[in-house]
Write a protein that binds this DNA or RNA. Structure first.
Lengths: 229, 229
DNA sequence: AATATAAACCAAAATCAAATTGGTATCCAA
DNA sequence: TTGGATACCAATTTGATTTTGGTTTATATT
């Protein structure tokens, strides 16, 4: 065995060797490279030395590692969770309403395409229950469920996820507002007719009317919100 | 055994029996009740009959069920899909494009209202840089930044948060796709003209054109995506 | 004929043990 | 002192197994 200590740049040599390997080997789609134990054997170096070289490349930001997962080329993916509390802290009811008016009519438009008879049946159930509700709390529960059923009916899990996020923020932002409302349920609440028009439009596959109905409904809600303050 | 058929309301009787059981038995914190097989044995009825009773209570919205999970009292929880990784796992590129087409044109419409001259300046910078990009990777970075600048210009932190969530899912879902594309940057890429039309519309406060431009742009992207596969 | 029951099967989801993997400590040799 | 081999750790993935609501089928029962 040649004397390795004769080369003061041995470590740098391994880094270079590793760079070469990474350049020519075609990695998996996710940019994952072989586990350290395999890679060290393949490169003919000890795992300790390989790790030193990996440390260099990681410091350069060319790869990232995680226990149990592996070592990957590229930059570490974003912290994967939208912090609802943080969002709610920076937002406010006006933004929530604007966001709803942006998203929900379009989601409703999609739902008019894709809703199944079962979806529509559940919407009708929500309509009926919300009419029977004897407290604001129950009414709001059925109202929320109706809107979510429409989002579900879009059959787009991503849109549904975004809708849920928006909803979670809405609840966090609105929490503790306007508890002083009259405890009375309602009889001719504007939402009843509006909700029904929306579900009717979805049932008749009237795409434009579904979107327009939801937009009109949310704009009414927004106006009422502003009026009462 | 007494003659059960003497009671024409047997089914209703089981519902009542079930209500009684649920009222007195203290369920777990999560409101979960025993599996159907156990519960039917405990109540001394067949699983079929128990399920009929459960159907009634579910239709009333008093409980919800899910295969593999169980049956729970109360209303179905919103699966707060804030987890981007989970979202990406259930979604796919088609959904991502549909979600973008739902959200971004409306965000763009809002931005045309609220964008500041600084915002527009940054958009123009992104346009120029994306034209200069000499790799796909760099181009995509500037493209992404342009779209995000538009979202920022909406001056709605909640919409921006939702946009970021959508974007994170997009990257997670799209990761590792089409690495095999020609390494060439681009010369007359369709996006250049489309991007410029959008920024022009925003600058001229042409709300409708801004939304329409973004929608047309994303529809082109979607079509190209489908073409190449 | 109509209905209830039991059993079997299915797919979604949870559960649990085993294997992987990056990170770290220890011991030994040069 | 340095590097290499080994063992061990905790986070994570993987895969088989179990559990669960949903569905079908065959068999009584009335």
């Amino acid at each position: 065995m040649l004397n390795p200590s004769a080369d003061p740049n041995l470590e740098k040599g391994i880094v270079t060797q590793l760079r070469g390997y990474l350049a020519q080997s075609d990695l998996a789609d996710d940019g994952r490279l072989p586990p350290e134990r395999e890679l060290s054997a393949a490169l003919g170096v000890s795992r300790t030395e390989l790790r030193k070289a990996l440390d260099v490349l990681e410091a350069e930001g060319q790869l990232w590692r995680h226990v149990g997962k592996g070592t990957f080329m590229g930059s570490r993916p974003l912290d994967t969770f939208a912090d609802i509390a943080a969002l709610a802290r920076r937002s406010n009811p006006a933004e929530v309403m604007r966001a709803r008016i942006v998203m929900e009519p379009e989601i409703c438009r999609a739902a008019a395409f894709t809703a199944t008879p079962e979806d529509i049946g559940e919407m009708r159930l929500c309509l009926a229950r919300s009419r029977q509700a004897d407290t604001w709390r129950r009414y709001e529960a059925w109202d929320t469920r109706l809107h979510r059923t429409i989002a579900e009916a879009s059959q787009n899990t991503l849109l549904l996820g975004l809708f849920d996020t928006l909803n979670a923020v809405r609840r966090a932002v609105t929490w503790g507002r306007l508890r002083t409302e009259p405890v009375k349920p309602l009889s001719d609440h504007h939402s009843f007719a509006e909700h029904e028009a929306i579900v009717d439009a979805i049932e008749h596959r009237d795409i434009a009317a579904a979107a327009a109905g939801m937009r009109a409904h949310l704009q009414t809600v927004e106006r009422k919100l502003l009026d009462r303050q």
